[in-house]
Design a protein around this nucleic acid. Sequence first.
RNA 1: GGGCGAGUAGCUCAGUUGGUCUAGAGCACCUGCCUUACAAGCAGGGGGUCGGGAGUUCGACUCUCUCCUCGCCCACCA
Length: 949
Amino acid sequence: MFNVKLLFDISKHVDKYHQNIFQRVAIISYLCKLKKNNLYYNKINTTTMKKEFPKAYEPILSEDKWYPLWLENKIFAADNNSNKEAYSILMPPPNVTGILHFGHVLNSTLQDIYIRWKRMQGYEVCWFPGMDHAGIATQARVEKELKATENLSRYDLGREKFVEKVWEWKEKYGGIIFNQLQKLGISTDWDRTLFTMDESASNAVKEVFIRLFDEGLVYKGKRIINWSPLAQTALSDEEVEFKEINEKLYTLRYYFEDSNDYLMVATVRTETIFGDIAVAVNPNDERYKHLIGKNVIVPLVGRKVPVIPDEHADPEFGTGCVKITPAHDPNDFLVGERHNLDIINTINPDATLNENAGEFAGLDRFEARKRVSKKLEELNLIEKVEDYAHNVGISQRGGEPVEPLLSDQWFVKMKPLAELALKVVQDGEIKFHPNHWIKTYEHWMNNIKDWCISRQLWWGHQIPVYYTEDGRFTAAIDEAHAREKLGLDANVALKQEEDVLDTWFSSWLWPMTTMGWMNDHKTESTPDLEKFLPTDLLVTGPDIIFFWVARMIMATEKFKGEIPFKDVYFTSMIRDGQGRKLSKSLGNSPDPLNIIAKYGADAVRFTMIFLAPLGQDVRMDVDVDAQDIPSMEIGRNFANKVWNAGRFLNMKLDQAIENNNGNSDVCIDENTLTTADKWIRSRYNTTIEKLNQSLSDFKVTEYSKMLYDFIWRDFCDWYVEIVKIQFNDADSAKQVAIAKFAIEIYEGILRMLHPVMPFITEELWHLLSGKDDNETISTQATPMPNNTHIDSNIEDKLALVQNIVEEIRKLRSSTSIPPSQKLPVAIAIKENAIREVFSEAKNVIAGMAKCSELEIAESVEKPSSSLSSVVREIEIFVSLGDAIDLDKERERLEKEIARLEGNIRACEKKLSNEKFVSNAPADVVAYEKEKLDSMKESLLKVKDNLANL
RNA sequence: GGGCGAGUAGCUCAGUUGGUCUAGAGCACCUGCCUUACAAGCAGGGGGUCGGGAGUUCGACUCUCUCCUCGCCCACCA
């Protein structure tokens, strides 16, 4: 037998252990164990019960308790064999090197809200998680570590050993972000986690490459590409960012071969003159027309090069003459192609100058620029030097300026893929939220360029192309397959392409690889694909609309003939108080885990969506030094409010049952419901409807705001306060009914709240229902509105009651009478129907507005020494006795008269405007008339009250 | 240069097809409260010529034009 006394003692001291989370967890798990064995709920005295419902919500206890239970009970597991309608989301795979940042927090919360909401709606829900191998980032990371620990470069190790090292690193550190994400409480089907380098995914990658190759959509070509000297690899256009940099613009003298005249040519990059092969002028430029065909001498180099006509030269810019360096400028390369010019490469892959630079060979490009410029100056070949701000391409990963470099690379022809992908978005088959992103998408699709997919890295999918010694090649699964395709004997030696594929080349297959497409070069369809493709929603940042979203649409259309997802939700960017993007390099982002530890996962989730409107950036008051985001209090305070409402209702129910001699079997009788009861029920159903609608419309912020307002304002501020009063007026059986009724509403709102605040709602649901730990709120049904309970008439009536209560409070607070002192109040209401409601709610009004006595009648005599107010023709008198300050009251009433008169004038003016009366809709005119009458009536009463003061 | 978005209270933002808006909320601020869940709370209060200008309309925060400011994306001229 367990010892109740011991348990009581332990829980009594929970607060003392407040500083020690581990001890608290231990105690709670002990309590849980007891609860599991059904030992505590019925048998422990009320003092101990209260300990189960601490005064403040303690997130860590719920978080550590429920997540493991959800996993254990396989709540997140999806069944592709189920009869239920499917709902699925693909998690944007975080980088294997990634650690949790606030982008993930927002993104994951949004996905989890939809996943949980749909799960509760009875869908077969699957959230596919996974991780990206992140070629450049991961390789750089491991290289750095290798250097630091063993002082080795990847070349020292060799390709095979190095790749092994990366795998080791991945096994050791790769999963960190998943553990971090679990702290957020997200409900992904972890058993389906896919890594983009897994064999199944790699097979699909190969398959796609081979198919595109065979179709001629993948080709190898010598092109100017963006070269990253740091990573020593090609980059795609999307991996280059442009940044304005201040540099010097040198105007150089290019002398004619046969005279002392010269052309002036401007350049920033003096170190590239070794690759100069021509000077271009615009063919229509009158200044230079006659010089076309002549030769000039490249300064310092001494090479004779022709003056050629080309549209590329802009007469408006600079001198109108451009030096042409095909090997180191994409535009010059095109000029070179048009004029059949030689190409002289002068820069090495590590961005040092090569032998073509003569005495400058071996120098880094920037050092070389300084030295070349100096030398040019010494030789008096510089006309002038100016400060010059221009955009320079920067490697997104390494941050160094990219070098345009001519090299052999693999490309995907994008035009044919883009057509269908553009159509499905334009036709609305795929919807963007917010939909203005369509324009950006269209622009990119219409101007799409071929995609450079080869990377000179070791970590990634090695391109499945095999070469014979004599230079023939094909794309194939393996050597045998290649020999078969090339018609070669088994003994012919083959060599595989050394380059690997761009990481996005595996990411764009994500909708298919997560579901097992071509995992073995054979399987076109799987139960997952049949059940879950197309997925329903993609939640991602607009920054990867080209990298990922567009390409997934292309690939899935191309290879599956389907759209990958139906809706795309583009998230907000998280910024700091100064509007800067939160980023590691700026060091302006606190660790989300610290914030979660401080405020609780639910609070963080709630605050994030509360603050992050669809499609607009969010500014947050981050404090990195303190590792704090004070606005997270919104969510924490709200969680606490929800918690305390539950705690209070639970307490009331216990009390009621105790008063009712332990009999809890009391049904709620429709006939005994008060106006307030019907009001909260109506508000509840109205709110439920709107909440579901908001989520359907992807208005998640609206959803959070409505929950906040309903729970805090309607339910807590008004209904729970009313319940207190109704409780006092009821017999014990009725008390049980009242508490149960309130709890029923509360339980519904918990279910509606669960998608955004999973932990606290789970905890409260169990505390209130006494359900076994292995049951969960996350599979209970989403509340649906009961339209027969929506009654706008009742809502209006109670709104009027609220107005009156507020008005009485306002009158009171204009005095210095303490809130605890109750005052006599009289209310005159002419309209019968309203008066009835007020009479029924008499005790409620008296309680809420602190009335010692309350008279409600068709007309009342103005009590002496009273404050008065008129609201919608209802007169209110609050008797003050000696405490009244007549001057103050007179002043107040005069102000009110002035206000009313002003409004009446405006209203009369409007109504005397013939055009308004004839053009405005009848109901608007009627409303104005009604308003005018009402205001006139009020004015009379206020004037009367002033006179009688 | 092209495109997109935003400018509403000190701050962060709501404001649905123009009329019930005397423009709301949270935070901050001021006043009073330990009122039988919650001080992470309760009650009340002050604070905005809705970026400027023009127009359409009986009526504009809302629609049109224009200008100003800020942010993002794309392109890129040596």
